[in-house]
Amino acid sequence: MTAIQRISAGRRFKDRFVQSLVYLSFAIAVVPLVAVLWMVIKNGLARFDMEFLTHSMRNIGAKDAGGGAYHAILGTLEQVLLASLISIPVGLLTAIYLVEYGEGTRLSRAISFFVDVMTGIPSVVSGLFILAFWILALGLPFSGLAGALALSILMMPTVVRSAEEMLRLVPNDLREASYALGVPKWRTITRIVLPTSFTGIATGVMLAIARVAGETAPLLLTVFFTDSINSDPFNGPQMGLPLYVFDQAARPTDTAIDRAWAGALTLILIVMLLNLVARLIGWWRSPARGR
């Protein structure tokens, strides 16, 4: 039988040491995040005004003050919306097939493999693919839609992966309970499985949107570039916020640099707003609300 022991000094030291190591790594992880936010807010606020949000860059040179990112905000929203409209249904249905129908089949293993491969595609490659296929081979013009196609290539695997993970978390008990009530499989999926995993899927989708909203390279090759407002994503070159930041930051004057910072701030705000909306929907849908 062993006696009750006192905590030795050595153990106490090790405990403290590891604890401070954990805090230190947390600080190291948070520092860049806070620094980025701080820089963007500090520098972005200078030009973050109504004119910036409501005007385009038409007839405004690099040295001129004023001008704004309205055309870029509009372009980004339209492109991301189109990309979501394409990739969320496809991604979600793929995930449903993988989890609910294809378990263990050769087709589902092949799909899983290719989704993994797609996750690793560098964003510029997806832009090059749409440039080569859509614009050069099919001869279609640069447009917001071409950009959305390139973005959806990047978005789809993320949506599939996160939705798949969330669907797998739904306990099999619930599916069986539903079957035992005489509910058909498709209705079990739409009325039991999807609502149960809704919050998780919404979060995953939001992360995917946030990821593609900041992509620059694929847009450069597909939506081209413009200083004017083009609200039609199916015709003619558009602008996007990342493109706008990229363009303005490359110019030598302070007014342009300020516009670039304000553009970056706008992009961050849009993504944060989308995230907030997703959280609100998740909270509103969650069963704990009634408690």
Binding site: P171, D173, L174, E176, A177, S178, Y179, A180, L181, G182, I192, P195, T196, F198, R285, P287, G290
Partner: peptide
């Protein structure tokens, strides 16, 4: 399954429902 109902070992109410 509509004619022959079932109760399982572990209680499994649908978590999203009242």
């Amino acid at each position: 399954r509509r004619m022959i109902g079932m109760v399982f070992q572990r209680p499994n109410p649908f978590p999203t429902m009242s």
